[in-house]
Amino acid sequence: MKRRAALIGALAWAGVLVSQAADVPGDSLYQLRATLATQGGTQAGFDLYRGHPAVLSMFYGSCPAYCPMLITAVQVYESHLDQTSRARLRVLLVSFDAAHDTPQRLAELARLHRADPQRWTFASAAEPDARRIAALLGFHYRRLEDGSFDHSQILALVDAEGRMVASTTKLIGDAAFEAKLRALTASSPP
């Protein structure tokens, strides 16, 4: 009897896992199964902030100008939110240069920019996952012969289910993007 109860429990648990995966909407970015290495030295899925509105973007850490600019830009956008809304928002920045952006370097970046570890994650993705994430976000990058990267810039705003609500190529002062950000974080559960 006990065994049967355990079995039923296991089946119910398996059912929960399956239905959770199936619940992700077809137009959700979280349909992508990709593996991230995070600043904490752990592995995470691309959907680690599922359940929260989130800003997603990509970068590489050794870029002297763009990387700090991107981080500052997101911090400026979220500084325009009230405290309650800001507490709901999550930020995931994925490096496409996994060879160089080790968990240690990512953690260093997070410290340097005083990124709130409760709400921000710096991570890296190896190929081909990095290219997949980029394709979903509409981000472009290409390694040049000298080892640097030619890349575009984009901030993507997704809802709690991972559906793209807005995106912008303007790191600063996109009023429409900011309005969407405000509306989404005002209405989401904490």
Binding site: P128, A134, A135, Y141, R142, D150, H151, S152, Q153
Partner: peptide, 11 residues
């Protein structure tokens, strides 16, 4: 191809 969307310069 793998990098189909990043062939041209990003700008």
């Amino acid at each position: 191809v793998h990098d189909f969307d990043s062939l041209l310069p990003a700008d």
